[in-house]
Design a protein around this nucleic acid. Structure first.
Lengths: 240, 240
DNA sequence: ATAATAGTGTCTCTAAGACATTATATT
DNA sequence: AATATAATGTCTTAGAGACACTATTAT
């Protein structure tokens, strides 16, 4: 059995420079829904490698920093956004994925209400596959042209969409993409946008209300030209 | 837009030693089911740090090696097993998870038919939570004593169990834990063991047969003292 | 024949989809 | 009043659970 003194002795003779080590980065797919379209934040690379290509916000991981902290730092620095839903996605480690040297990317995805972002660098995501097949996706500019993505970021983004679609089937996670209070219609629109298919309204209502994760506020939306819907909010209960 | 010559120029002046980098390891939770019990392969650490504690087989990632290759190498070296189902689980990166230096662990889980392993170091897994709640799990020796696990390996193993339970709800992934040909009863036993709860026999049969992932072989088991059941095998179709 | 499990048929119950109806806001 | 959408009620349908019944092997 290990003792503290044995470990201390070991640590004094341990040389961390003994082995070559890969670099470790985090990259974040920051997703949002606006105008009935799934969008992602991408930034144009100004420096080599792959200058001119578009990439997910990312950064190298500091030596004393947790992976999630690094991801939040990348979001704060490059997307100027904090306090968002953030979850680890997958770690991409193909030996040749970055031309500089071996760079692993611990990918995260984040969800945020579009209202909290300046929409400058939000681009439309085009998903060329059905359901949860998976595979790379495209990011398109306002003119409909596909933007060239850096490294394997099309794969990372594709996996983020796949994960999100999967979660949506048994979690009302869509409220992460809406303001604090929202109508069921808004929530359904978000789900339909992400899933890429229409949902049954009655069944959607029943499932959401039965999930126990939504709470009626008693208030109603306004500034609509028809009967206003009730506003709901998320109850911070255990997520299954 | 990036050009090949710009990238080449950049690479010539790039110094990969400029930044401190964490070490990167892979750890593999090799799971199996035998005697109606979920088991995992753990090895006793012989060297500091944490000598005497038990750990999942792992290794540092080589500079030119993919993460999955590293995981398979760890399995071949420490568990003497190849050709198993292997899937990435999660990357553990708490700054203090390893006392030596910053070490990230890209965790994998693997599934294998117990018949293909020498059972020497297979230990029983005790899951102290219900359903897909999650959290650390225990590994117990033959005498029922819990083994002390190294680092955060109880967390890693707990996440492997959680992932496996989740997959089982919509995938007949249990056949990865059985010989090539198996009866539906064996498959149900595996599912029940992993889920930790009994399943409805009729409904299980219907779901499995309807999944399209099983194929009847026309053959039957033998050496049983009652009516023999038909043997099925996995059809290597698209996994949803 | 008896014991034991495999495999099938059918009834019930629950949840999703479809559709009709009522309610409540704006113009 | 006309219009538009919210919200509810009910019928139908598909799948899960429950259970009874038949089938097939060994002893």
């Amino acid at each position: 059995m290990s003792t503290a003194s044995e470990d201390r002795e070991f640590l004094e003779t341990y040389d961390p420079a003994e082995f070559d080590r890969p670099s470790v980065a985090v990259d974040v797919a920051l997703l949002t829904v606006s105008d009935g379209v799934l969008r992602v934040l991408v930034v144009e690379r100004e420096e080599a490698p792959q200058a001119g290509r578009w990439s997910l916000p990312g950064t190298f991981v500091g030596m004393a920093e947790s992976l999630e902290d690094a991801a939040r730092r990348a979001l704060a620095t490059k997307a100027h956004v904090a306090d968002v839903f953030l979850e680890q996605l997958y770690t991409f480690g193909a030996p040749d994925r970055d031309p500089r040297t071996r760079v692993l990317s611990v990918a995260y995805y984040a969800l945020v209400d579009a209202g909290r972002l300046s929409s400058a660098e939000l681009r439309r995501v085009r998903v060329p596959w059905e359901g949860e097949e998976g595979g790379p996706v495209e990011v398109v500019a306002a003119d409909g042209e596909a933007l060239p993505l850096a490294f394997d970021h099309a794969e990372i983004l594709g996996m983020a969409v796949k994960r999100l679609r999967g979660k949506l089937d048994y979690t009302p996670i869509g409220f992460q993409l809406l303001p604090e209070r929202f109508t069921l219609r808004q929530l359904q629109d978000v789900h339909e946008t992400i899933l890429g298919r229409p949902l049954n309204k009655d069944s959607f209502r029943r499932r959401m209300l039965a999930s126990g994760q939504l709470e009626a506020t008693g208030e109603r939306e306004d500034e609509v030209e028809h009967r206003p819907a009730e506003l709901f909010c998320f109850t911070h209960r255990s997520a299954l």
